[in-house]
Design a protein around this nucleic acid. Structure first.
Lengths: 186, 186
DNA sequence: TTGACGTCGGACATTGCTGTCTGATCTACT
DNA sequence: AGTAGATCAGACAGCAATGTCCGACGTCAA
């Protein structure tokens, strides 16, 4: 693999994330424009639009997985660990939210498979909190995860709309999520 | 307005909901087919695809607004009132879950504006709950409202993705929202 | 009944996209 | 420096959808 090819691929993936975030149906031409590349070049590396989106999704999930793993969700009090995870998510995962919507119509099995690595880190944390009574136990883990994602996204929207000061968002988000999962947010 | 025109409009709106539910990008041709109408007829009543979708959305929100008003959000314990509101909203929304996904990619400002009528009923309820200590008071009302909207929408999306059984959604949603607002969901 | 309104059936131009291909030009590696 | 590999610039066909238009035909309501 030549160095310039590698650069192109990186630029394309980067541009695809940006473009698809602002418009989930962004065209290949738009992605190419943002990548500073000609449209045909994309097809050199990705046989089709679908293949490109799959590659982008996989990379996004890999990034998220790494960011979450980095804050050691398996250590310490569940509430504190979740707090750390939320901070990581707030900073890292936010920009990929659009991809969630794009992939939402995929076969359920494939979707589940793609999220497996994230689940692998979060599920034990949530389960641990359910065991020791920190989080509501009569709720599926997937629901808790959906709740977390929804509130992170809502926080992002509120912030962008200037309906809440930037400095206030993180504590608000954390308190709301902890409450939603059933923890008493102190 | 002639009677057959009124029938056509009703059939088109009905068909649009159905078609967009099974495919959020359903074409005008598909909608026309389901409505038992020729494609051109749609353009007689709705100048563009966007206008049709807007009409469908507005009607859905109007229905939800009416359903919420009907359960008297201004009466009784705030937690109980919120519970009633969530039940009413969820049931009315049942038919329109697909529209949630479609409108999710709209400009945030427009989304906010379309939800205004629902918010108008909710804001006093939330304020009342903050006053009597049922809901977290150190949080802007707008944040609580955003939280509620986000969780209702998330519930809708989870349901559509078949990640949670339909029968479980309502109690899960209620428990999660009450917790997120700081009430003890008992 | 009659005429205005509405729908039908289909043709039509336009647009925007995907995916392919070409030859020319550039660039990384040996 | 030379060569294989990569990008560029742009053309091309194919397709699907939107939105417009038409004449013929049905249907509502006065």
């Amino acid at each position: 693999m030549r160095a310039d090819a590698e650069r192109s691929i990186a630029a394309i993936l980067e541009a695809a994330v940006d473009a698809l975030t602002s418009d989930p149906e962004a065209s290949m031409a738009e992605i190419a424009r943002r990548a500073g590349v000609v449209r045909a070049t994309i097809y050199v590396h990705f046989p089709s639009r679908e293949a490109l989106i799959e590659a982008v999704t996989k990379r996004a999930i890999a990034d998220a997985t790494q960011a979450i793993a980095a804050v050691e969700p398996a250590s310490g009090e569940p509430a504190a660990a979740l707090r750390r995870v939320l901070e990581a998510a707030w900073r890292t995962l936010g920009r990929f939210h659009a991809l969630v919507a794009i992939n939402a119509r995929l076969p359920a099995a494939e979707l589940h498979e793609r999220h497996a690595s994230v689940m692998a880190h979060l599920a034990p944390l949530v389960a641990r909190g359910q065991d020791d009574g920190t989080f509501r136990a009569n709720v599926p883990i997937a629901w808790h995860l959906a709740t977390i994602m929804a509130l992170v996204h809502a926080a992002s929207i509120e912030l962008q709309a200037d309906r809440v000061p930037a400095a206030d968002v993180e504590p608000l988000l954390i308190a709301t999520v902890l409450g939603a999962l059933g923890a008493t947010p102190a």
